[in-house]
Design a protein around this nucleic acid. Structure first.
Length: 834
RNA sequence: GGGUGAGUGGUGAAAUUGGCAAACACGCAAGACUUAGGAUCUUGUGCCGAAAGGCUUGCGGGUUCGAGUCCCGCCUCGCCCACCA
């Protein structure tokens, strides 16, 4: 017998075996039941910590479990390889993104293999490869062709050195996260995708996602943010300019006492030019535009405003109310103009009080008569309408429809639905991304690059000096080209495609990763999609998962696929956190907090199987977990124990004799272990099928192993001892194999099996094994446990009741008190109420 | 402010969905084998109590024969969205 489990050797052996035998290779044309198990591909940042590892290990357990159920499983992996960190490294350290990305991919791939995670590496993709981004560009063109890609001027966060910044890259003090320079707003012509055209579909089809976490579905619904209301056309009293507003509360429209407009609103610029208050209003606008996005969106920041000198006329009652420019109206939502009803809106009320604007009650509180001049807070409840012309005395909710209908009839408004969702900004002023396949021609405008000319290659020889901004923008060889339409001189678009687009169609590419004449084969993706199980972090609940749904819907409408949703079931795993030694707080693992646990060291110290098991045993996979360096010992001990037991009992386990489990011939101790074995099969299977209760599944394996030790039947003195022990050990290995595959394969082979344990069918429960001759019944008196009796299985209730009442301790507690009621839960307990 | 999840031993947690609370593991304590143990094994380990027994799932109420689980109210914490008209 080997003294110690040589896990490094074993892991190497089996990882090589799986690779050489193509264990995880998928023949997509094979008939039979398919299963597409997908774990979100990573950004190749360099190294992965145990928190990242959890993700892939969960996916691997599912893959192996499904393989053992005879599914044709597709389990691919790739790299979301375009991104800012690589470009920063180039600017700061002088390493080309191509090189750093390549290096990082090699390292991370090694890590995945070390963990024994099984993928079909023949299907590997990296979004930064021209063979891949060619088709990302193709999708851009498809969008353009369908009228879903367009250009418009938009405000971006702009740093003179680092070019465009995402909101997340702007510090709360309004400076650039990277270089510390002030961030300003800059208007740039940008490409957008009309995801808003699909807002309703994206919202409606959430109902199809019944195997997604409710939380994610809610987050998406909130993000899409549908509001029903009305558009009402006010007009500027002095000039007659239209001033439309959107409201969800048309029932308060007679209570409008002022109008609020966003500082960026074009109407405002038009009105104030040359007006009396131009100076004052302009000062206010300038001040607002300088405030950083983060600061402005801070709820606690003061509400400010300035009277513009203009008024608007309310089409319902002809009243003219002052027009104020304020910092709390968003240009991007609704019409950028808000009708203010201080009496019935919290924010409008506070603003009105601050600037002494009138408060006009138009909905009466049935419980407490409201008075506009004495109110201390807005009344947002319901009640009969007052001061509202033809709608007086009607209930506000009930009148809502007629109020909008009136506007429609008179031609100054209509029913409207507004979404919070905005069009998707596609342009990035960055180098490390797929070039937008557009040529700007002075004659023909923005001309799409013909499909046959794809990919538009990203040049390698660019200048990464920080002061040059986007390296592509100064690469004249790249920029100068001919117009695909007229053949005259044209200039290439130098913005690149947002990384999000690269990652929201990769699950299609995995099906046909090497086709060179199209992104995918429609017949094949129709057969393999939707993804049966998608696994990843909750942080993608909105962006990636919403974008992917959008792209699939567009491809569906373009006739490229028959499915409407990309992911049938979604599992979002929790993060692994660790207490920081610096301040004792618990954080998710990050380099800056210094609480990263390296799986590489743990693999060396304990082996991959132990790391995998502990990662799963630490807690329910959908919840965050706190890493403990001590806790891993338990899993290490368990694996070593199984290892020893196999060698200690090798005679029984590998004997050429055929042992058959026969319940009738078993004594109690064999019978008990045999029952436990089948209970374990039943429970683990349930753990796997209903939610991913891997932590419980592993606990049950430990229980089984404990009973195998405690039952004392491994001496093999009778045939049934041998039969049951051997069956239990073999089954234990099969059940263990998704979690600790290397050791399971090794011991499986040690027991004389020739093929991979993955080729074994998942064990099936023997219902007879679960039966019991005798049952222990708990006796409760008034709901408290007072004793227990052992009775034959199937005893009738009367006999059980009699037996319980005879019980000594029961007698003691009853002590002649009258028995009021007896509740019997068959096979479980009996409760006597006295 | 809106949405959402959670609160169980010294620790990570479990509880067949209303039926024996604390499975499994860590840690700790005592012991065995050892030159030694950070290997392995055995025993113990929710709290109070000498014991009988009592108490215990954030707090307070309720439904029920029976509540960690369901209902009502409160407290605390987490995450997501947030000036959305």
């Amino acid at each position: 017998m080997k003294e110690q489990c040589p896990f490094a050797e074993i892991e190497n052996k089996w990882q090589t075996f799986w690779e050489q035998n193509g264990t995880f290779k998928t023949d997509i044309s094979k008939s039979g039941k398919k299963y597409y198990c997908l774990t979100m591909f990573p950004y190749p940042s360099g190294t992965m910590h145990v928190g990242h590892g959890r993700n892939y290990i969960i996916g691997d357990v599912v893959t192996r479990y499904k393989l053992m159920h005879g599914f044709n499983v597709l389990s691919p992996m790739g790299w979301d390889a375009f991104g800012l960190p690589a470009e920063n490294a180039a600017k700061n350290l002088g390493i080309h993104p191509k090189e750093s990305t390549k290096k990082n991919i090699i390292h991370m791939k090694r890590q995945l293999k070390e963990w024994g995670v099984g993928y079909d590496w023949d299907r590997e993709v990296a979004t930064c490869h021209p063979e891949y981004y060619r088709w990302t560009q193709w999708i851009f063109l498809k969008m353009h062709q369908m009228g879903l890609a367009y250009q418009k001027n938009a405000q971006v966060n702009w740093c003179e050195l680092c070019t465009t910044l995402a909101n997340e890259e702007v510090l709360p003090d309004g400076t650039c996260e990277r270089c510390g320079k002030p961030v300003t707003k800059k208007e740039l012509k940008q490409w957008f995708f009309r995801i808003t055209n699909y807002a309703q579909k994206l919202l409606d089809d959430i109902t199809m996602l019944d195997q997604w976490p409710e939380k994610v579905r809610n987050m998406q619904a909130n993000w899409i943010g549908r509001s029903e209301g009305a558009n009402i056309n006010f007009t500027v009293t002095e000039t007659g300019d239209p001033c439309p507003i959107f409201t969800t509360r048309p029932d308060t429209i007679y209570g409008v006492t002022f109008m609020a407009i966003a500082p960026e609103h074009p109407l405002l610029a038009k009105l104030i030019r040359g007006s009396k208050r131009e100076q004052e209003v302009n000062d206010f606008i300038k001040r607002q535009l300088m405030v950083s996005a983060a600061e402005r969106s801070n709820d606690s920041s003061a509400k400010e405003g300035v009277f513009t000198g203009f008024h608007v006329t309310n089409p319902y009652n002809g009243e003219s109310v002052p027009l104020w420019v304020t910092n709390y109206v968003l240009m991007e939502y609704g019409t950028g103009t808000v009708m203010a009803v201080p009496a019935h809106d919290e924010r409008d009320f506070r603003f009105a009080k601050q600037y002494q604007l009138p408060v006009k009650v138009v909905i009466q509180n049935p419980d407490n008569n409201l008075n506009g001049s004495t109110m201390t807070e807005a009344y947002i409840g319901d009640g009969p309408m007052v001061n509202s012309g033809p709608f007086n005395n009607r209930h506000n909710r009930e009148a809502m429809h007629d109020i909008i209908q009136l506007a429609k009839d008179k031609g100054f408004g209509d029913f409207t639905i507004t979404f919070r969702l905005r069009d998707w900004l596609m342009s990035r002023q960055r180098y490390w991304g797929a070039p937008i396949p557009i040529v700007h021609c002075p004659k023909c405008g923005a001309v799409p690059v013909p499909e046959k000319d794809l990919p538009v290659l990203l040049p390698d020889d660019v200048d990464f000096r920080i002061e040059r901004g986007n390296p592509l923008a100064s690469h004249e060889k790249f920029i100068n080209t001919t117009c695909p339409s007229c053949g005259g001189p044209g200039r290439r678009e130098t913005d690149t495609i947002a990384q999000w687009l690269c990652s929201c169609w990769y699950f299609l590419r995995y099906v046909n990763p090497r086709t060179t004449d199209k992104p995918f084969n429609t017949g094949d993706i129709n057969a393999w999609l939707p993804v049966d199980q998608y696994i990843g972090g909750i942080e993608h609940a909105v962006l990636h998962l919403l974008y992917s749904r959008f792209i699939v819907k567009v491809l569906h409408d373009a006739g490229c696929c028959s499915f409407r949703e990309p992911f049938r079931a979604l599992f979002t795993q929790g993060m692994i956190c660790k207490r920081s030694e610096k301040d004792g707080q618990i954080y998710k693992m990050s380099k800056s907090k210094g609480n990263v646990v390296s799986p590489d060291l743990l693999v060396k110290q304990y082996g991959a199987d132990t790391l995998r098991m502990y990662t799963l045993f630490i807690g329910p996979p959908e919840k965050d977990a706190e890493w403990s360096d001590k806790g891993i010992e338990g899993c290490a001990r368990f694996i070593k124990r199984i290892w020893r037991r196999v060698y200690e009992n090798k005679d029984i386990l590998t004997s050429s004799e055929k042992y058959v489990c026969k319940i009738k011939e078993m004594r109690d101790k064999e019978r008990d272990l045999y029952r436990k074995l089948h209970e374990t099969i039943e429970n683990i299977t349930q753990d796997m099928e209903t939610g991913f209760h891997f932590n419980s599944a592993i606990a049950r394996l430990m229980e089984l192993a404990n009973l195998m030790d405690d039952s004392g039947i491994n001496t093999g003195s009778t045939e049934q001892e041998k039969a049951v022990y051997r069956t239990a050990m073999e089954t234990l290995l099969i059940l263990l194999s998704p979690f600790a595959p290397h050791i399971a394969e090794e011991l499986w082979q040690e027991l004389g099996h020739k093929s991979s344990i993955l080729k074994t069918q998942w064990p099936v429960v023997d219902k007879d094994a679960l039966k019991r001759d005798e049952l222990e019944i708990v006796i409760q008196i008034n709901g408290k446990v007072r004793g227990r009796i052992t009775v034959p299985a199937g005893i009738d209730n009367k006999k059980l009741e009699a037996a319980a009442l005879e019980n000594e301790t029961v007698q003691k507690f009853i002590e002649g008190k009258p028995v009021r009621k007896v509740i019997i839960i068959p096979g479980r307990l009996i409760n006597i109420a006295v």
